[in-house]
């Protein structure tokens, strides 16, 4: 290692970051575990009745919206993540095949645009795209003789609203994945492809046997982080549906686990609310951990670390 130890000097360099991390990251983690075991805690009065193992989790689990929130969260994650990973992978392979550099750059810029937009602004644009009377989606369907569907309007159903939301979430997730996959593809040694061409392997075989295995660490990383992100879906829903989290007259139809956390936090002054928020957040953390663990197990078998 470089030189001998500089204990005191090192801690001086670390101090600003550690003070902030201690206050806004480490303390909140411990405090969440503390809050969740307090019975009837009220932070305004600073009072609580005692300690409880399960009360706060029970509050969340018996919330009339909990099943809907959990179902929506899972659905968003399990539809939008695989869909956007596959589409992004295909787009990046096609992009990589474009021989003209400037044209490739042009397409790259377009595909990157969703990453540099405001999720609220674009959410509002999507809501209007799906508008029953004036939207582009129904106009398009009308060309095929399909009569206008009430996607996200007054008293729109859960199914159509969820479909619209999934289109938006998938659209929003593509940019980042395409960029990461493309940079991965550009890092693959051309020799592999030349060898495959000499063996006259078919296109799809090259894709399955060379591209995907060599890209697998990146696909894995993107899948894990995208699942973690998708479990936290919230801002996208606000963008499309506003604070009522659903079509007008069908309020909260698009509620998610994170929405439960913020609902509880909005009532922060009332007894038990903060502990409930902590319980909902810890449930989310648990779900994230389980899926990350499963992903890791799968990757041990499937991912090729070259």
């Amino acid at each position: 290692m470089l030189e001998d130890r500089h204990n005191i000097k090192s801690w001086f360099y670390l101090a600003p970051a550690l003070v902030l991390l201690g206050t806004f990251i480490f303390y909140p983690i411990f405090n969440a575990f503390f809050l969740v075991f307090l019975e009837d805690y009220n932070y305004l009065r600073g009072t609580f009745e005692g300690f409880t193992l399960t009360q706060n989790f029970r509050y969340v689990l018996t919330d009339p919206n909990f099943h809907l929130a959990m179902g929506n969260t899972m659905l968003i994650a399990f539809v939008s993540v695989p869909l956007s990973v596959v589409i992004a992978l295909l787009i990046s392979v096609w992009l990589n095949a474009v021989p003209i550099k400037r044209l490739q750059g042009f397409f790259q810029t377009i595909f990157f645009l969703p990453y540099v937009t405001n999720a609220i602004a674009i959410g509002m644009a999507f809501a209007f795209l799906f508008n029953q009377h004036y939207g582009l989606v129904n106009w398009f369907l009308g060309l095929f003789g399909i009569s206008p569907i009430n996607w996200v309007g007054l008293r729109a159903g859960w199914g159509t609203a969820m479909f619209s939301l999934l289109v938006y979430v998938t659209w929003l997730g593509l940019a980042f994945k395409i960029m990461v996959f493309l940079s991965g593809l550009q890092g693959i040694d051309k020799q592999y492809y030349e060898a495959a061409r000499v063996d006259s392997a078919s296109r799809s075989r090259i894709f399955r046997r060379i591209t995907v295995p060599l890209l697998s660490p990146m696909i894995m990383y993107i899948t894990v982080t995208s699942f973690i992100g998708a479990f936290k879906a919230y801002t996208e829903i606000i963008g499309m549906f506003g604070e009522r989290l659903g079509p007008a007259g069908n309020d909260r139809a698009m509620i998610t686990i994170v929405a439960l956390v913020y609902d509880a936090l909005d009532r922060s002054g009332t007894t038990g609310a903060l502990s409930e928020a902590a319980a909902a957040a810890l449930i989310l953390f648990g779900v994230t951990l389980i899926f990350t663990f499963i992903n890791m197990q799968v990757s041990k078998k499937r991912v090729h670390y070259g």
Partner: peptide
């Protein structure tokens, strides 16, 4: 330890940070 905190959903921090 720092890297490990990246796995934790931000909502857990938000609750306490709001009180802070």
């Amino acid at each position: 330890i720092l890297i490990a905190t990246m796995m934790i959903p931000g909502e857990i921090f938000v609750i306490t940070n709001f009180i802070t």
